[in-house]
Design a protein around this nucleic acid. Sequence first.
DNA 1: GCAATTAATGCAACACAGTTGCACTATTAT
DNA 2: ATAATAGTGCAACTGTGTTGCATTAATTGC
Lengths: 139, 139
Amino acid sequence: MNLIERAKELVSLTGDRATANRVRTLSVLLSAKRALTHREIADQLLDAKKQLDRVTLYRILEWMSKKSLIHKIAGDDRVWRFRINTEIRAHQHAHFKCNRCAKVICLKDSKYNPTPLLPVGYLLQEIELTIKGVCSECI
Amino acid sequence: MNLIERAKELVSLTGDRATANRVRTLSVLLSAKRALTHREIADQLLDAKKQLDRVTLYRILEWMSKKSLIHKIAGDDRVWRFRINTEIRAHQHAHFKCNRCAKVICLKDSKYNPTPLLPVGYLLQEIELTIKGVCSECI
DNA sequence: GCAATTAATGCAACACAGTTGCACTATTAT
DNA sequence: ATAATAGTGCAACTGTGTTGCATTAATTGC
């Protein structure tokens, strides 16, 4: 089963329409080894026969986040990055951000077991751990 | 010793000029109980006799970050937040971000002792831990 | 003190990610 | 086939943050 077929299946599983744009976008993220910006995704979609509008891409990415196909990562360059959700990675957010090239990768196996001290009356919903440094390519 | 005097002293310690704008800005952050956005800081400076330009405020905040008087926190709403640096908080970044009102507070005593699994060849520089949830006022 | 240098400020214009409204098109349901 | 619904494209907009440059204020060296 190739990438496009797998993407198509994943999109279909949401119950919503499996449009070509959604499938193409998801297949890009499926093959990405790191979190991509909207820009980077758009660039990879450039070679396709029909160019898709940047707003449409924003909406597709937002839709995919809502459907938990992908997740967003907030960088400190004010740019969202998007990453495919795999079973392993889901809900265990640990990311590495390169201070030189700004690339973001997902760290699996980051065993952060928290119980951090929240003030009384506070509700914990999510823990986001970002390790910053320099990746091997930029060192 | 009042707030303004303390702010003035801290600014002077950097070796650079202790202008009224810098002192005023720092005193706002000194009395803040949470991380503030550029907007929020500007609002608090409104009542002063002479209004300062937003660009100037951006530059003051950038300068203060460089001088380690304050630190920046990247929110996922694409907005920087600024927080005073105290000895305790320096270099131990753990923040709580409310998912409703978007306020950010600094969590002290968050004993995260990491050694997270970075890929080989990666250099670790900083660990940023953000706990998301709902603060007591928004619950 | 007074000029010369240096740093800080204000203004205008810009960059860029992300959003909203609305018309248009394609898809699904009846 | 027609009506209802969902997705797309375009244009215009929002808001944060930045850059360039002229102006003003503060230091420095006489």
